[in-house]
């Protein structure tokens, strides 16, 4: 980490290799737009690079710090997008393909359904789901990323799973 802070090329490459895919994945799941996710991932990594020399460890892991930057970037993109003409939520909501979570093996198809379902969650629920089940962070780290308590994160997790279960069940129906 110290070497990265001194802009050592190999240390920076290691961070980039580790976090670019995760930031991209996070952005894609948040936005559902590949191009936007690539822009966001690019912005986030440059912001990480700019801010890295000033980074100080205060109990939260580096991942929490980077996800927080990523989340802020996503929010900025959402705000920018809101200024543009909007489509209605019904129009925007992608139709979910019928699926049986236990029987479906086509992962790419299943991912599209899930991505659509994720877009129907609230931003916070979506963030918790992405970080908890898709990026494997524990509730403590998620709480640090979001600046919320662990209880709040667990509650969001519960509500998100319930909403997703309902959305996926609706899709099957």
């Amino acid at each position: 980490m110290q070497r990265a802070q001194h802009l050592d090329e190999r240390a920076l490459a290691s961070i980039y290799e580790q976090f670019y895919p995760r930031v991209y994945s996070y952005a894609l799941l948040q936005t559902g737009d590949v191009a936007m996710a690539e822009d966001i991932a690019s912005d986030v990594m440059l912001k990480v690079l700019e801010a890295l020399p000033r980074y100080r460890f205060r109990g939260a892991p580096l991942a929490a710090w980077i996800y927080r930057i990523a989340h802020n970037c996503v929010m900025d993109h959402h705000r920018r997008r809101k200024r543009r003409p909007e489509v209605s939520l019904d129009e925007a909501r992608p139709p979910l393909a019928a699926h049986n979570p236990e029987s479906r093996t086509d992962v790419s198809l299943q991912r599209q359904d899930l991505q659509r379902a994720l877009q129907c969650l609230t931003a916070e629920q979506r963030q918790v789901v992405i970080l908890r089940f898709l990026h494997g962070l524990d509730t403590r780290t998620i709480a640090q990323v979001m600046g919320r308590s662990q209880g709040a994160v667990k509650s969001l997790q519960h509500r998100a799973l319930k909403a997703l279960e309902r959305l996926l069940a609706e899709g099957e129906g």
Partner: peptide, 22 residues
């Protein structure tokens, strides 16, 4: 079960050219 489905969703990998460009 929903959580299990989510975890089975698989890894999202970025386009190599996008990653390289960045």
């Amino acid at each position: 079960r929903t959580a299990i489905v989510l975890r089975q969703m698989g890894e999202i990998t970025p386009r190599p050219e996008a990653q390289a460009a960045t």
